[in-house]
């Protein structure tokens, strides 16, 4: 990978808040024009990393650069070329949609009309509500307005911190479609989310847990690196199923996953007869009416696996 292809470069970044370690030796790189996802639960350190990358806070150690500009020295230049949408709604609720947009345009010294084509697709849905105060918009519309405001100056890199948290599923899907379209405009997008399923929509992802990168790859690559065979089990008494299977020595891990339990076992241990032998064992303990099958791992299963390995 050539240096000029890299948009965001993070090397060995650590950050402590008093005694709490927020980030520990984080390294990752984002290519130009890529959609990069930071995946992890709340408190994993995603927002802290975003704040370092957007020059809002300084790392304790390590370096980070945006388009070759250092977050420490060149923060003023960085602030001209990035767009940032923080985790919470951070527009002016008492200003109208139109006023918010033109205010943020003027913050970056541009007019709304300058880059309107870039946001047209996003903004056209809320344009009819131009005179409505931003606080009275629905959650999905607020997100659209915030995205429009973050894009109005045509940034090279767009940072979106948990843009879909608290947004209904339909608006979430729509939001990702909008990001997909932005990519065609050549904007590098760094987005964080705690919804594991959204990882699949990114070009590359970094799984983050407790301030450390568990894995950084394409979603496909992450799933391919999964070392176990994964089984799903569902049946009548889910609770005692979980308890009983957990007591079996050969099981690597079992955890509930929606309506089912997922069982991870070592690839080498698994053979065609394994499911039958497991079923017999369970029937012997008194379990009836359950189903077991082999399934493909999801990003969330990988996350569970990798974080167990890290510990």
């Amino acid at each position: 990978m050539k240096n000029s292809d890299i948009s965001v470069e993070v090397k060995g970044v650590s950050k402590n808040y008093s005694s709490v370690k927020a980030l520990e030796d984080i390294s990752l790189s984002v290519k130009k024009g890529e959609m990069f996802g930071l995946i992890g639960p709340d408190g994993a350190g995603k927002s802290t990393l975003f704040r370092i990358l957007t020059t809002l806070i300084l790392p304790d150690s390590g370096t980070a650069a945006i388009e070759g500009l250092d977050v420490r020295q060149d923060y003023k230049s960085i602030r001209k070329i990035i767009g940032y949408m923080p985790g919470r709604f951070s527009l002016y609720g008492d200003l109208t949609v139109q006023e918010n947009l033109s205010f943020f345009a003027s913050v970056f010294g541009v007019k709304v009309s300058d880059n309107y084509s870039l946001i047209e697709n996003i903004f056209k849905d809320i344009a009819p509500f131009g005179d409505r105060r931003a606080s009275r918009l629905s959650g999905g519309m607020k997100q659209k307005l915030a995205l429009s405001c973050a894009l109005i100056h045509k940034p090279s890199v767009l940072f979106l911190d948990e843009p879909t948290t608290g947004v209904d599923p339909v608006s979430r899907r729509e939001f990702w479609q909008m990001l997909e379209r932005l990519k065609t405009d050549g904007i590098t997008i760094v987005v964080s989310t705690s919804y594991m399923d959204e990882a699949l929509l990114c070009d590359r992802v970094a799984l983050i847990k407790e301030g450390r990168v568990l894995s950084s790859d394409s979603p496909r690559g992450v799933i391919d690196s999964y070392q176990n065979t994964l089984l799903a089990i569902w049946g009548e008494d889910m609770h005692s199923l979980l308890k009983d299977i957990r007591s079996y020595g050969e099981i690597k891990s079992i955890y509930s996953f929606g309506q089912e339990h997922h069982i991870a076992i070592d690839k080498n241990l698994y053979n065609i007869n394994y499911i039958d032998s497991l079923a017999k064992k369970l029937e012997a303990t008194g379990h009836r009416n359950f189903h077991i099958k082999v399934i493909a791992p999801t990003i969330e299963d990988c996350y569970m696996e990798f974080s167990a390995n890290k510990n």
Binding site: R79, I82, Y92
Partner: peptide
Amino acid sequence: ETGTMEVLLVSPV
């Protein structure tokens, strides 16, 4: 408090 300061800081203003 509302977080708009964050957005304003990440700008050339």
